[in-house]
């Protein structure tokens, strides 16, 4: 297929993946942040500042006071000038979908287009001011609809493989970044008793923020503290939004898309990463070790991103520039 089209599909998947993950994070943190911190070490918050760090707005977090909730909400949900905001991602995704209208099914196009229209309606009608729940819920529902329609209506061909590859690499990167930010303040050494509850609470917020609380409760018998939660989100292949599951799915998508996948750099790298994750899953899960793994995974994913753009899109994306910088 055309490299240009593959590129558009890949980025359509990324845009919608980022919009959905951002919406879920905002929703999860918002609900928790309304209430006081709990006395038991569960249910506390991943801070707004942490969320800014996840989204890469690092210069914002240099300030001395905690960022204001409404400000962060606005910045990450409806600020059209912030390229990572939900609204900007949907807008860009819709533009991409328009370019590939002939490749995706009419129903998928409609799902994206309606999402954009709906968001502007919500935004303009001031619904965001009385509470972001419906706005964010709408994003989650429409993104789920889009991916569901892709499963149902799209030919299982290269085009679909690139669309999925984009969605999965975005999911893996978002979850890795979230985990890094949540565990980062507690560093390599063993956290002391004072710090511990805060970190445990943040871990539960992470489950809220990816919609994985239910899956975690069914899969893991440990209490939702930092190590089990981070391990679950990183390694649990049975959970579709875990890093390991996303890496596997990305691998599968590229194998399907690439006629000579056996020698393809990104495919080989992903196979190594997948095996490595499986190996590390059996090793220790202390916070320091997890942080180290997360750092490695993030670097590897950036290299995968670079390999993908190099092999399929003639090496022109931002990822390559970031890595070489």
């Amino acid at each position: 297929m055309l490299a240009r089209i593959a590129h558009e599909l890949f980025w359509l998947g990324r845009q919608l993946g980022r919009a959905e993950h951002t919406a879920r994070m905002l929703d999860g943190i918002y609900a928790i942040d309304l209430q006081a911190p709990p006395d038991a070490p569960v249910g506390a918050q991943l801070t707004w500042e942490g969320l800014l760090a996840v989204m890469g707005a690092t210069d914002e977090s240099e300030r001395t006071e905690a960022p204001d909730r409404d400000e962060v909400m606005r910045l990450l949900a409806v600020d059209a000038n912030n390229p990572s905001s939900v609204l900007a991602c949907v807008e860009a995704g819709r533009e991409g979908a328009r370019v590939v209208r002939d490749v995706i099914s009419a129903e998928m196009w409609e799902a994206v287009n309606t999402l954009r229209l709906g968001l502007y309606q919500h935004h303009l009608s001031g619904g965001f001011g009385t509470g972001p729940y419906e706005f964010l819920q709408y994003v989650k529902e429409r993104c789920a609809l889009f991916w569901g329609l892709a499963e149902r209506t799209m030919l299982e061909d290269e085009a679909r493989a690139f669309l999925h590859a984009g969605g999965r690499i975005e999911a893996a990167q978002m979850v890795v970044r979230m985990l890094r930010v949540a565990l980062a303040p507690f560093g390599d050494e063993v956290a002391d008793e004072v710090e511990r509850p805060a970190r445990d609470g943040q871990a539960l917020a992470l489950l809220h923020a990816v919609g994985g609380l239910h899956a975690f409760r069914r899969a893991v018998t440990d209490p939702p503290n930092a190590e089990p939660v981070a391990g679950f989100l990183l390694y649990e292949r049975a959970y579709p939004d875990s890093v390991a599951a996303s890496v596997d799915a990305l691998h599968t998508a590229l194998v399907a898309a690439d006629a000579r996948s056996r020698t393809a750099a990104p495919v080989l790298r992903l196979a190594r990463l997948s095996a490595d994750l499986e190996f590390r899953r059996r090793a220790s899960r202390s916070a320091g070790d997890l942080l180290a793994v997360l750092g490695d995974v993030q670097d590897e994913l950036a290299l995968v991103d670079h390999d993908i753009s190099d092999r399929y899109f003639a090496g022109g994306t931002q990822a390559s520039r970031v890595m070489t910088a």
Binding site: W11, T47, M55, T58, A66, L291, G316, T317
Partner: peptide, 23 residues
Amino acid sequence: GRPLPPRRATVPPPLPDLRQSSW
């Protein structure tokens, strides 16, 4: 102004900028 946990230098690098993704 709740005290924030100290944030070490492990803040992840910036996300790929979606604006520059177009062909």
